[in-house]
């Protein structure tokens, strides 16, 4: 199994993504530059965080138009695993592979800290191994998830909300929803369930050697999704 870690100008979580896959999950992983047209030979794609193209126009807008994203779309359509974290989530929303959009945090602040996620739906291959509540780092200024009412009804009805921001006990509070996301939504799935986008950074916490492996159950979703594909 080989996962593509997509690199754009301004990606900055690409190394964390690569090594979480290679060292901690134990699968093959290679960088793929944004100008590539094909992801032949790869079984999945990780779109890492960063500030691609300086966040010009909108976060993820320009990266979303790049050559490689057409190949990522084809990979998503084929049922293989695609994970977007932070800017990767923004890029997936900009391309329409995932619904909704990410806008400026409600209090205008860039937030860099460890928060808690509540696993909403363990039926998904991405979340099947996740505990009820998991501590995960976030680092973003534009992570407030928004979607219209119809989209929200669909996401909730189909069990496509993967994670919500919560407190340590797993309760959804105004304070735990630090960026003001609608319904505290932190991560969503596509219709087929093989694409996950989330603002927090699971790739930063996949080894006890660096403090925590809370993100490993999410990263291991690459294996679970592929087993179902």
């Amino acid at each position: 199994m080989k996962i593509a870690v997509i690199q754009f100008p301004g990606s900055n979580c690409d190394q964390d993504a690569l090594w979480s896959l290679r060292s901690d999950l134990g699968v093959e992983a290679e960088y793929v530059w944004h100008g590539e047209r094909s992801l032949a030979g790869f079984d999945g794609a990780f779109i890492p965080g960063g500030f691609t193209y300086g966040d010009y126009l909108r976060c993820g807008a320009i990266a979303g138009q790049s050559q490689v994203m057409q190949a990522v779309r084809e990979m998503a359509d084929s049922g293989r695993p695609v994970l977007g974290a932070c800017n990767g989530f923004q890029i997936l929303c900009e391309t329409g592979i995932l619904p909704g959009a990410l806008v400026q945090n409600i209090d205008q602040r860039f937030v860099c800290k460890t928060i808690h996620l509540r696993t909403e739906n363990r039926d998904s291959a991405w979340t099947t191994k996740c505990p009820d509540v998991l501590p995960i780092p976030v680092a973003h200024g534009e992570g407030r998830f928004v979607a219209d009412d119809e989209t929200l009804r669909e996401l909730n009805g189909d069990g496509r909300v993967a994670f919500r921001y919560c407190d340590e006990a797993g309760d959804l509070t105004e304070e735990s929803n630090f960026n003001g996301s609608v319904e505290s939504i932190a991560g969503v799935l596509n219709k087929r369930g093989n694409v996950l986008g989330m603002m927090p950074h699971p790739e930063r916490v996949t080894s006890k050697k660096i403090g925590s492996e809370a993100g490993l159950p999410i990263i291991s979703g690459f294996l679970s999704v592929l087993a179902n594909a």
Binding site: L57, R58, A61, Q65, P99, V103, V146
Partner: peptide, 9 residues
């Protein structure tokens, strides 16, 4: 539609 504005927001 394609780039300058995001119709979702």
């Amino acid at each position: 539609d394609k780039l300058l504005a995001n119709p979702v927001i």
